[in-house]
Structures are given as structure tokens and as C-alpha cells.
Design a protein around this nucleic acid. Structure first.
Length: 241
DNA sequence: GCCAACGTTGGC
DNA sequence: GCCAACGTTGGC
């Protein structure tokens, strides 16, 4: 499931050693191959125009399948307290700003499609910070990727709500990135308003017609096209709806 | 708190 | 490999 990301208040960030995730053992190496393939591509029905800014990435292992590289993202996080296995999973933009360097690791993602998107994130790319499962869902801030995917240590922590007993240290299933606060959006951009545009654009072919917030509603890590990102960003200059 | 959407699991 | 049961997400 697309877990909302959870960050502990550790300020747990990048400089710690990655475990020996590199030494892939043999038994499990194929365990997530099929999931790798099935996600990380545009929805079947999407028009090419919607994805035109996505660049192809050559596969290093001999071109069996070209994958798409995305440029912008939307990250969901829950700003209101909620217990999961006894642990509060709340993480609002204020919590992010309170971290050292206003940076956090985006741990707890336990959905293969979301994981694959995490793994395709590149340093410096920007993402919307989205508040979900709360009174006023919507976009509150912009963050950027400051460390590319590396193993999510919480999968090995039995006390973590997202512990995964099936994941091996030699071949971790789950990844995370580090993200840093960039700025608040000039105003809160509510889901309802984005949805209004999405519905209009479905009729008139506008930039939000295929936005994953609505076509893949439960995905916690979502790519945005340049057009989608730019359009949503343009909303911050406008009167609230 | 309700419940629709939808991903995962497991029986067959 | 199908698909019903189940569990979670997340808007409302």
C-alpha cells in the first residue's frame, strides 16, 4: 500500500552509512523484479501530450525496456496524528521545517509503484508536499530531492510500523530518498481546487486531465509532467477558489 | 465515521 | 492464473 511517509523526528538524514546493501546475495535477487516492471510507466490511456516532457532513460542492462524518467513529483504526507501500530505517523510541513536542515528521509513507502518512482527521483528535482487524510487536503509546499534512493532502514526495524520481515539486508526491498524544504507555496492549494481543474481539463484537454492524484488516487508518490507542475504552480498566483 | 477505490493475498 | 475476500487509503 502506498504508505504515507513517516519521518521520525530523528532528523535522520543522509550521512549515516548505508548498510551493505550493495552486496547482493543470490537467493533473493529476483524477488521484486516483476514489481519493478509493472509500475513506473504512464497510465495506459494517457495521451502522449500529457507525457511529452518525460524523457526516456536508456536501460543500462541492454535495452530490454526503456523506462521513463520523470521530472517532478507529488509527495503525500499526513499532517494530523494517526496511530499505526501504536506509532504516530503524523508528518506535516511544519514537522519538515523543524528537522535539521529542514531535511528528512522519506521512509515508510511500501508500495512497489511508489517505490519505483522513488528510485527514479534525481537530485535537485522538485516535488509538491501534499497534506493528505486531513481536514484540508492539498498542496502546502515545495521540496526538493537532496539524496537519491537508498535503502529504507525502517524495513529492518521490528519496532517500526513499516517493518518488513520479508526483506533481507543483502537485498532490501524498500528505498527512500531525502527531501529538503524549499518554500511554502504562496497559498494553500486545496485538493478541491485542483480537482475542479482536473475535471475541466478532462473535457477540454487541459494540462491536468491525466493528473495521477485523480487517476491513481491511492498512490503516495506521484510523478507530474512539466505541464502539470507548471499549471499547479500557476494556481498559487490566483485567487483562491 | 463512512465507504468507494483499489492493491494484496490466498484458495482453488 | 482467476478472482473473492480482505485490508488500506484517503476524501468527504
Amino acid at each position: 500500500m502506498p504508505w504515507p511517509s513517516r519521518k521520525r523526528d530523528k532528523g535522520a538524514v543522509a550521512d549515516k552509512k548505508e548498510p551493505d546493501a550493495k552486496i547482493a546475495k543470490t537467493e533473493e535477487e529476483t524477488s521484486d523484479k516483476e514489481e519493478d516492471e509493472k509500475s513506473a510507466k504512464p497510465p495506459a490511456g494517457s495521451s502522449k501530450s500529457g507525457w511529452k516532457n518525460w524523457k526516456k532513460k536508456e536501460s543500462e542492462s541492454g535495452g530490454e525496456e526503456s523506462k521513463i524518467t520523470y521530472c517532478h513529483w507529488l509527495l503525500k504526507s499526513e499532517p494530523e496524528s494517526r496511530l499505526e501500530k501504536g506509532v504516530d505517523v503524523k508528518f506535516s510541513v511544519d514537522d519538515l521545517k523543524a528537522q535539521p536542515n529542514q531535511t528528512t528521509c522519506w521512509d515508510g513507502v511500501r508500495n512497489y509503484q511508489a517505490r519505483n518512482f522513488l528510485r527514479s527521483m534525481k537530485l535537485g528535482q522538485q516535488a509538491f508536499f501534499y497534506h493528505s487524510n486531513c481536514k484540508e487536503p492539498g498542496i502546502v509546499a515545495i521540496v526538493k530531492i537532496v539524496k537519491e534512493a537508498y535503502p529504507d532502514h525502517t524495513q529492518f526495524d521490528q519496532k517500526d510500523p513499516h517493518y518488513d520481515s520479508t526483506s533481507r539486508k543483502e537485498n532490501p526491498k524498500w528505498s527512500m530518498v531525502d527531501v529538503q524544504f524549499v518554500r511554502m507555496t504562496k497559498r494553500f492549494i486545496p485538493l478541491s481546487e485542483i480537482k475542479t481543474h482536473h475535471l475541466a481539463h478532462k473535457a477540454d484537454g487541459g494540462p491536468l486531465k491525466d493528473m495521477m492524484l485523480f487517476t491513481r488516487q491511492r498512490l503516495s508518490i506521484q510523478p507530474l509532467t512539466q505541464e502539470e507542475f507548471d499549471f499547479v504552480l500557476s494556481l498559487e498566483e490566483e485567487k483562491p477558489h
